[in-house]
Design a protein around this nucleic acid. Sequence first.
DNA 1: AAAATAATTGAACGACGTTCAGTTTGTTGC
DNA 2: GCAACAAACTGAACGTCGTTCAATTATTTT
Lengths: 199, 199
Amino acid sequence: MARRSDHSREEIRQMALNAAETIVVAEGYKGLSARKVAGAIDYTVGTLYLVFDNLDDLVLQVNGRTLDALYEWLRARRAPDADARASLLALADAYIAYAETETPRWNMLFEYITDKGNALPDWYQMKLSKVFGLAEVALKPLADHRSEQEIQQAARVLWASVHGICTLRIRHRMDLAGGQSTGEMAHMLVDNFLQGFEA
Amino acid sequence: MARRSDHSREEIRQMALNAAETIVVAEGYKGLSARKVAGAIDYTVGTLYLVFDNLDDLVLQVNGRTLDALYEWLRARRAPDADARASLLALADAYIAYAETETPRWNMLFEYITDKGNALPDWYQMKLSKVFGLAEVALKPLADHRSEQEIQQAARVLWASVHGICTLRIRHRMDLAGGQSTGEMAHMLVDNFLQGFEA
DNA sequence: AAAATAATTGAACGACGTTCAGTTTGTTGC
DNA sequence: GCAACAAACTGAACGTCGTTCAATTATTTT
């Protein structure tokens, strides 16, 4: 049954992305396959390749959605009216909570590795920047005497650091040091970093 | 030609690990396959499964070697006689240099993800602890008034943070904020954190 | 109604991880 | 020296994978 036109190209795209998300949540990154996605939306593999360049492209699109979801999750949980310290701690906690709640989706954000030297597309970088931006906004009140650039740098350093703690913990590369939870480690980081940054 | 006894089981194991490393360096994690490893050591796939449980097991063994190599790399480059700050900066720089020099091997350390909830084996955790230990030793002179546990926690937080910066940069998840290099970001982190930690 | 066009299929390709019946070799007991 | 046994090793087989593309079918256009 060719040209069913039951669904537009864009509809198929969205259906495929939904199906892919469901599969990743249920079976993890490795459980994802073109045939499974196609089957889940009642199309064949061939059709998938009309809509996506390849599986990596599909994964990248799912990741794009995940970044959007992450941004909304963080925005809903930040404490914009608190002081910088509390605000950044809220962000860190929210990030960790997202990673722990949506582990398969969050994992996929970093399991997808570009070929050596090939950067991610611009639209993807912008989504990333949007997430980083939340930390910049939170950090600003603490240091409005500093340059825009310094704040951006510090925000990214902080963000990457929280991410590092989070990723090593979730992937079992760092056992609980003295019973300290992931959140407590992140707090230790933010507290000490800010104390230095304020000085 | 069965039971060639040209090589002992352990020899085959080492040959396979060597071959796997070569393949990973040349073609990356995704380029690794059982057939390629077997071919490279002039055995067949079947033999590989006498020596390793499965490909994940082989990858884990390679990662174990990588952790050993990383430890030696860091040990050779640390500045044990410098003050804590300089010592930790040297470690951070060395870690970043390793990741940038041995990117495929280093990447594989984190691309291998255990099934949900399954921790890594004890021998692997010990190798990880050994690496973390370098940071603990470097940090100790700065805070010998603090408890052993506090130092361990702080060292791990610092390490994970440097790792986070490193991984986001190498995987293109964080563009150069205002032209700041990976090393400069790590320095910013260490400097500010230590200032807070000392206080 | 025929021709042109677009959408969709599904078989095909080579490669993958993993298994295991079968073959070959070394070792042991006579 | 020879049979019997055990260990080492093979390679074909299974099901799955990403990806391609000639063939088929449905819609539009003429």
